[in-house]
Design a protein around this nucleic acid. Structure first.
Length: 592
RNA sequence: UCGCGGGUAGUUCAACUGGCAGAACACCAGACUUUGAAUCUGGGGGUUGCAGGUUCGAGCCCUGCCCCGCGAGCCA
């Protein structure tokens, strides 16, 4: 919505949104609309995307990004990128750069400069002293184990720390000592003094600061005490003027703490409000940085940008268009229900986009030689092929044709099974953008596998039709043997074979699919495929969409296959055969 | 065990806040087709977790129960 003042806009629902914008009316958007109606936050809307720079972004983050940026755009608000870099452990400039790059690739631009929670360390420190002065925070000398034990449990009371009653003056001196390096790592912490009997564990005197002598990627050695997430997050929101702080469901219990901290501080803006929604779940896809790090470290994948990874870099390398990812996360919607979306939905958005935009090319992945026996000696032809039937402006290209061709092994059967209507002895098919050919003879190897198919062509069928108008049932792709160029193709299957990896407390890595990648080094490509851009995605006709590798333009990654009706037919045939067999066995059993 | 959140086609979400339960993807069938693709048409699919209650009328309100998720880091 581009209306300047959303409150005064007529209640026209989503009618005036442009096609690119979200048309959702989820509970968050409804809530923001209601806030605007009641003039809360002075009708201002500000969100933020707050990743910790300790890993790369994945498709789960895409949902959070889309939500925050789209909501801001729809309500004429702003959305910033803020790095939640409160804990130097595991954080690195490498990830900051990577996240900015991935965010830009996904198609989003922060409303202002990139922000860092670490820029607020001094303000956070000052606020901590304020809380100490008010008697709302204290220094605890106990170790982590003791503090944890005293916290109690669900339905069990907590125990107050013996240091809980220290005076503000005493706490102030100790806290400054923490900052100034008087104590060892872990020797002391600063805690909020809230309620050790609260039913909400987050409120049982949570830790605000810990001592950690570790260089921070941005503040270096300036600080040796670092704020925890809870002590930093709401305040960062408040400093920036965030109005709606959107996060995932696991932070629901933290909201009470978020509010407690902010209500005890003098804030420069209205107090922001946290709202939670469910994170993205995807079948066959664990969604955890921890698991991804193990895949990388154990060498199961080549890196964070391996095309099998659900990271944004991995998906980009695989050829997933950013717009398809955006459409997908938008379509999944925002709710509070824990859910797992079928990965087929994502793939359908990828196909829809690529079908619209990608050039058609011919490539033979598993080559079988075809010899045209009646082709005029020494002759060569250039045929015209359409680049994209979905896009007239994409034009045409020429493909060379000669006496020897490569076709797909799957496209020829000596004894065709039921409903198979590709090439077989005596049968005529059309070569895409070429001629009709009929198979006559086959040469086979010792095991009976075809090595060469001898065919005749109909000279009158150039362009794909004949004067007599006779029909053929199949059109197959091909590449001229004399003109083909070589290349490598990576075929990908699911990285995990279980639709819900790690379900029931099992190790997600236990269901890693050992056959997630198949590399074909002997593929035959039409000449034009020697001239492609890194990252470009083309459709290999009848096979699928393939992305040119970012570093090596002779390597193609299968982004996603085409829908394959023939494969479905075969599956059904096998299934019904098995059922017949089982029925036969059951009959035998019964009669015996 | 305690607290919080959640249960609507196979899946993800809608249902204008109490008024004929819909869409997309998936699945099935047909049409069309120089990609067994795409496109088009149609179809199967639901005891709205369960049991009561209020109401002319309940997916929505009330009561009880069941199931699932999250929460006891000096992680975020």
């Amino acid at each position: 919505m581009s209306t300047e003042n959303p409150v005064d806009a007529p209640d026209d629902g989503v009618g005036d949104r442009s096609p690119g914008e979200s048309t959702s009316t989820d509970f968050i958007r409804q809530k923001i609309a209601a806030d605007n109606d009641s003039a809360r936050f002075s009708q201002r809307v500000q969100t933020r995307f707050p990743p910790e720079p300790n890993g790369y972004l994945h498709i789960g983050h895409a949902k959070a990004i889309n939500l925050n940026f789209s909501v801001a755009a729809e309500f004429a608000g702003t959305c910033n990128l803020r790095f939640d870099d409160t804990n130097p452990e595991g954080e690195d400039q490498e990830y900051i750069d990577g996240i900015e790059e991935d965010l830009a690739w996904l198609g989003y631009k922060p409303s202002g400069p990139v922000l860092y929670a670490s820029d607020y360390f001094q303000q956070l420190y000052d606020w901590a002293e304020n809380l100490i002065e008010k008697g709302l925070a204290y220094v605890d000398d106990q170790d982590a184990e003791t503090i944890s034990a005293q916290r109690g449990g669900f339905g069990k009371p907590g125990v107050e720390s013996p240091h809980r009653q220290r005076t503000p003056a005493e706490n102030m001196e100790l806290f400054r000592g923490m900052r100034d390096g008087l104590y060892a790592d872990g020797e002391k912490v600063l805690r909020a003094k809230i309620d050790m009997q609260s039913e909400n564990m987050q409120l049982r005197d949570p830790i605000m600061y810990r001592i950690k002598r570790m260089a921070h990627h941005r503040t270096g050695d300036t600080w040796i005490i670092y704020p925890t997430y809870d002590w930093a997050h709401g305040q960062s929101d408040a400093i920036e003027g965030v109005t709606h702080s959107l996060c995932t469901l696991e932070f629901t219990d933290n909201r009470a703490l978020y509010d407690w901290y902010l209500s005890n501080l003098d804030l420069p803006h209205e107090q922001p409000e946290q709202t939670e929604y469910a994170r993205l779940g995807l079948t066959y896809t664990p969604m955890s940085k921890r698991v991804f790090a193990r895949l990388v470290n154990d060498g199961i994948v080549d890196g964070w940008d391996d095309p099998r990874m659900p990271t944004l870099r991995g998906l980009r390398r695989r050829g997933y268009p950013a717009s398809a990812i955006r459409d997908f996360v938008d379509k999944v919607g925002i709710a509070r229900t824990n859910s797992t979306t079928e990965i087929e939905l994502l793939e359908s958005f990828v196909r829809t986009e690529l079908n619209r935009t990608s050039l058609r090319r011919m490539a033979v992945l598993r080559p079988l030689k075809v010899v045209i026996t009646n082709w005029p000696e020494g002759e060569e032809r250039l045929l015209t092929a359409i680049n994209n039937p979905e896009d007239d402006t994409a034009g045409t290209r020429t493909v060379a044709f000669g006496p020897e061709l490569w076709i797909e092994q799957d496209d020829f059967k000596v004894e065709p099974p039921a409903k198979y209507y590709r090439l077989s002895p005596g049968r005529e098919v059309r070569l895409r953008a070429g001629f009709y050919i009929t198979a006559h003879d086959v040469e086979t190897d010792a095991e009976g596998n075809p090595t060469t198919v001898f065919c005749s062509y109909d000279p009158e069928s150039e362009g794909g039709s004949t004067p007599d108008g006779r029909k053929v049932k199949a059109t197959i792709h091909w590449v001229s043997a004399q003109h083909a160029v070589g290349g490598t193709v990576n075929l990908y299957n699911r990285l995990f074979s279980d639709p819900h990896p790690g379900e029931g407390g099992t190790d997600p890595l236990a269901s890693v699919n050992p056959d997630s990648r198949e590399t074909l080094t002997d593929v035959r490509l039409e000449q034009s495929l020697a001239d492609v851009e890194p990252g470009q995605v083309v459709q290999f006709e009848r096979l699928g969409y393939f992305a040119v590798d970012l570093d090596d333009s002779t390597v193609f990654h299968r982004t996603v296959g085409l829908r394959d009706e023939w494969a479905n037919i075969q599956k059904r045939q096998q299934k019904s055969q098995r059922q017949h067999k089982n029925q036969g066995q059951q009959k035998k059993k019964r009669s015996s």
